Simulated scan of single mutants.
Amino acid sequence: MGTEEKTNTCGTICLKYLLFTFNLIFWLAGGAVAAVGIWTLVDKSEYISLLASSAYSASAYVLILAGVVVVATGILGCCATIKEHRGFLIVYFVLLLFIFLLEITAGVLAYVYYQELSDELRVNLKEKMVNQYQQPGQDHVTQAVDKLHQDLKCCGSNNFTDWRDGEWNKALAGDRVVPDSCCKTPSDLCGRRHHPSNIYNVEGGCISKLEEFILQHLQILGGVGIGLAFIQLVGMIFTCCLYRSLKEEPY
């Protein structure tokens, strides 16, 4: 009888150390997850205004929320483990489950948008660029297009000839063929020459460049969200085991 009690006690102590260690790692991971979400929104955030769907930014916001909740949950988990309080462990388990669902949601959103991205860009990007560029009240689109041209070294949605259409060409182009931001060395009215030595003229235009850029971010978002979600399953298993090993205590 005494041997059995000692075995149970040792098992409980081992579970406590495992769960405490997990919580420290989990707490650090929460900060990392939030950082990935913030990085996704901040890095080339201007491009979001060129997208018709909000799924890209929604995935990032879900990860940021999950990261913040993870940090708070990690602190609660450490307290529950140290105090051996079954009530705290229940709350901790519920929060882990909530975060798990958040991260799965972020991963699914990233995957769904991954499948729709190419079609969305081909349908919407040219329309938004040529009809909203340098138009009144569309400063965010103008800045996004200029940054897109310079950062990704492209011109137009499919190629520079896209700029022959739309409101910009009708009212604002003057004798320019493309916006000045298409130039390899931007300067006033440099867009009058569309020779490859003067402007960016890549195959596939900005659509292919932006698609590649966003896909890289979506892969990171999806990988972080789903990967950490499954790691949390380990934490939930530890929590259940520790809960069952502790004697019933009044809440």
Rank of each mutant, 00 (worst) to 15 (best):
M1I: 01
E5Q: 14
K6P: 00
T12A: 07
T12R: 11
C14W: 09
Y17Q: 00
L18H: 11
T21R: 11
N23E: 05
L24G: 13
F26D: 07
L28T: 01
G30P: 01
G37N: 02
L41M: 08
V42R: 10
V42D: 04
K44C: 03
E46F: 14
L63Q: 04
L65K: 00
V71R: 02
G74E: 10
L76M: 04
T81G: 00
I104Q: 06
V112T: 09
Y114Q: 15
E120Y: 09
N124A: 14
K128Y: 11
K128P: 07
Q132K: 09
G137L: 07
Q143E: 14
Q143S: 15
A144K: 08
V145K: 05
K147W: 06
K147H: 15
G156S: 06
N159E: 03
R164Y: 15
D165K: 13
E167K: 06
W168A: 03
N169G: 11
A171H: 13
V177I: 13
L189C: 01
H195T: 11
H195Q: 12
Y200D: 02
N201F: 11
V202G: 08
E203H: 15
G204I: 02
G204T: 05
G205H: 10
G205N: 07
E211D: 12
F213V: 03
L218D: 05
L218T: 06
F230P: 01
F238N: 05
T239Y: 05
Y243H: 14
Y243F: 15
R244H: 14
R244N: 14
